[in-house]
Simulated assay, not measured.
Amino acid sequence: MAAERKAPSILGFPHRPEWGAAAHRKALAGHLRRCRDHARIGPSQAARCIGASESTISRMENGQAALKPPEVQRLLDTYGVVEPAERSRIADLVQEAAKPEAWQPYANAAPPTLRPLLAMEPAARRIISYEPQLVPGWLQTEEYAEIVIRATHPTKPAREIAERVGLRTQRVEMLRRAVAPPVLLAVMDSEVFRRQVGTPGVMYRQIRHLLALLEELRYQLHLQIAPLSVGAAGAIGHPIVHLRFFTPDYLPDMVYLEQYEGALYREKPAESERYQAILNNLCGVANPATQTPALLEAALAAWR
């Protein structure tokens, strides 16, 4: 007799409010899909049990639709999920998933293409970022960020520019989080410090800000500078962000590829592993993080 299949469990995904609503919704969405598959129930049957369409089930299982407690409870009944601990954890996750996203206080300023990254980065264990032209957004000063945003959106009103600056500069706060903050490994092209953004004073204060962050966040922030000599390894041409989460069994790696008019996201394992290899190669040929303070001091001197 074939061994009975083990029922999927959500207990390996903790209830962590600091990770944000999107991470809880995404983990629970995948779990609901696994529960349905384990129960050998098709999407149409699942949809009938909550009086919805198959497309609604698809959106729920992809983390793209709100998870309403009564509907989730009926689905769990249909899928035969009866263990009290499982039901209790799912109820907690449903409640957390219904809270506002990390970007929602800045909804008017958060571009739709950036929202998935903003929503998921609080749940990351490790973030690798490559920026070929500018200081990474997490690490920008307000004045540097304002100049960059105005250059990209010259027709936006001052209020929206200010909101975008606020959104960008507050992202570093997750590195200051008391409970399990992410680690950010940021790689910048050396030309970032030669490309003048604003006045020499703006550049000077931005570099001083980086030095201060490295001192303050010595365990959470690792900054590498890639010289021109890295050659093809640094000729990527656009920013890349690779997120790895605390619970990879529930949240697969996410890759964000910034484009001038939008962004692309990659989550399939083969794709995320390819970008991980690209970033690992770049980190390997860039100047070690231990040399960064001295390199920043040298860049600082050029803007005095």
Rank of each mutant, 00 (worst) to 15 (best):
P182E: 05
A180D: 15
Q133D: 05
P157A: 08
R171H: 13
A162F: 03
E160D: 15
I127L: 11
V187W: 05
Q220C: 06
E173Y: 12
P112R: 09
A145R: 10
T113Y: 15
A186L: 06
I161M: 04
P200I: 03
P227K: 01
E142Q: 12
P105Q: 08
L223G: 08
A212M: 08
P111A: 09
H209C: 02
A102C: 06
T113F: 13
A180W: 12
R164I: 07
V187H: 02
S129G: 06
I128E: 05
V197G: 03
D189W: 07
P122I: 09
L213M: 02
V187C: 12
L213A: 01
A212V: 14
E163W: 09
I225W: 05
R171M: 10
A91P: 06
G166P: 03
R177F: 08
V197K: 03
A178R: 15
L211V: 06
P182L: 05
Q196P: 06
P157D: 14
R164C: 07
P112G: 12
I127G: 06
I127F: 06
R195T: 13
N108V: 09
A162R: 11
K99Q: 15
Y130F: 13
M174P: 04
R171K: 14
R218E: 13
I128R: 04
V187T: 13
R171D: 07
L213R: 03
I127Q: 11
A145V: 07
L217P: 00
R177P: 11
L185P: 03
A158Q: 13
I127D: 04
E163N: 03
L223A: 07
I225V: 14
A151G: 12
I207V: 07
R87V: 04
A226V: 08
A212T: 08
R115W: 01
L210M: 02
A212C: 01
A119V: 01
Q133C: 09
A102E: 09
W138K: 06
V148Q: 07
V197Q: 05
D92R: 13
L228Y: 10
A162T: 06
Y130K: 07
A162G: 02
T155K: 10
T155H: 06
V165L: 14
P227N: 03
A119H: 02
R171P: 10
A145T: 12
L228A: 13
A102R: 13
E96F: 08
E131V: 01
A107H: 15
L117C: 11
Y219A: 14
K99Y: 04
R89E: 15
P111G: 02
D92K: 15
M174C: 12
R159C: 01
R195V: 13
D189C: 13
T199H: 05
A119D: 09
K156N: 10
V192K: 10
R125E: 14
R89P: 09
E215V: 14
I225M: 10
Y204N: 07
A186K: 01
H209M: 00
